[in-house]
């Protein structure tokens, strides 16, 4: 069965005029968000995006934008408590759930 998360939340943006159709984003995306249409990348299903940032990091033409972050409630709670950016740092002690 397919997993589905919240709709209309991803911050992913594609600047089509900067895209050269190299296909790197398609290659690295773990959730098949992109598709090639007329030699340009298009976002086919933004709701599948988990904001991992792989496409942005690997786009040689800066055509992609996303607020990269961890989709981890524990990290966000720790971020709130310590006043820092949420990160996958729960691994520093034995408790905690992510990674």
């Amino acid at each position: 069965m397919k997993h589905q998360y919240l709709k209309n939340v991803s911050t992913l943006k594609l600047k089509s005029d900067q895209c050269t159709g190299c296909g790197r984003c398609m290659e690295v995306c773990p959730h098949n968000v992109f598709l090639m249409e007329e030699k340009k990348s298009v976002i086919v299903d933004k709701d599948r995006c988990m904001e991992c940032g792989a496409c942005v990091k690997n786009c040689p033409f800066d055509a992609l934008e996303v607020k990269q972050g961890v989709g981890c409630a524990y990290a966000i709670i720790m971020g709130w408590l310590t006043g820092t950016e949420p990160s996958c740092d729960c691994s520093d002690n034995s408790s905690g759930s992510c990674c």
């Binding site: 904001e51 990269q68 409630a73 992510c98």
Partner: peptide, 11 residues
């Protein structure tokens, strides 16, 4: 945090 498909904005 353990799942493979949740986004920061969504969580």
């Amino acid at each position: 945090g353990s799942s493979t498909f949740t986004s920061f904005s969504g969580v």
